[in-house]
Amino acid sequence: MTVTLEPPTPARPPASVAAVRVPNRTTGGELRAIKIVFYRELLRFLSDRIRIVTALVQPVLFLFVLGSGLGTLVNLGPGLSLRTFFYPGILGMSVLMTAMMAAASVVWDREYGFLREMLVAPVRRGSLVLGKCLGGAVIAGFEGLVVIAIAGLVQVPYSPTLMIEVFGIQLLLAFTICAFGMMMAARIQQMQSFMALNMLLIMPMYFLSGSMFPSRHLPTWLTVLNRIDPLTYAVDPLRRLVFDHLHVTAATRASLDAGVSWDGWHVPTLLEVGVVAVMGVFMLAVAIAAFSRSE
């Protein structure tokens, strides 16, 4: 009976599992969070081999089936096939598809509950979103590399500078698209809804971007839509880079690779890249704000 009179706590054996002191929030802690979320994205991607392949089906279909098929109808000039003309757009499209799928994974995470585990962690939501976007960008960049690797099949030379510059733009585009996807995913609860929205946005974005036609001399409504499409500002520099390495006449190049203009003013390449970067940062900020508000 004396036992019951003792206060219940002290008779406890020493903790068998070493106690850990969790330190306060630090920049280091945030970096660690970004790193581990990034790492998880890569792990998930590498373990999902089907996704690696399926993400490439559509770009390849566009390039070879549509490119070869439509190529019989048009004559772009000596030494230039429609496939080659499509190629810069396909470099962008492969990234677009994969980056959107990477962003979509946050909707899966929400449906399967894992998002909750991340959201309740004592780290900034921004670190989680940034880690996810960087992870998605690298995954999409990897898919982009595959498309770079098939350059020879569409008569584009394997030049190291070309490949490096193209890859740089792909990475940047991938990041921006990921941020765009995350911005949408922040408000979407179900995968079906995201997929529907994805289909609704991806194809128009691709078609409007000037991937399949030069963005000069379009009807006004199409010009307006073309100029507000973020993909336009990635496809145009990609095309310029590719055409720099092709042997085509100046006239052909002038009609097919005319560049993007704002009200008659020719937008320089660096500014185009800047537009993609600024859009990416802006959409990332919107995504972070949206995730910070929820729960």
Partner: peptide, 26 residues
């Protein structure tokens, strides 16, 4: 939680590592 919040595609060990990193376990 009442509902599962594990990442089913990762190993048990990786799930714990993720948690530890997010919570700043040294």
């Amino acid at each position: 939680f009442q509902d599962q919040t594990l990442d089913g595609y990762l190993s048990a060990q990786m799930n714990l590592r993720l948690h530890g990193e997010l919570y700043g376990v040294p």
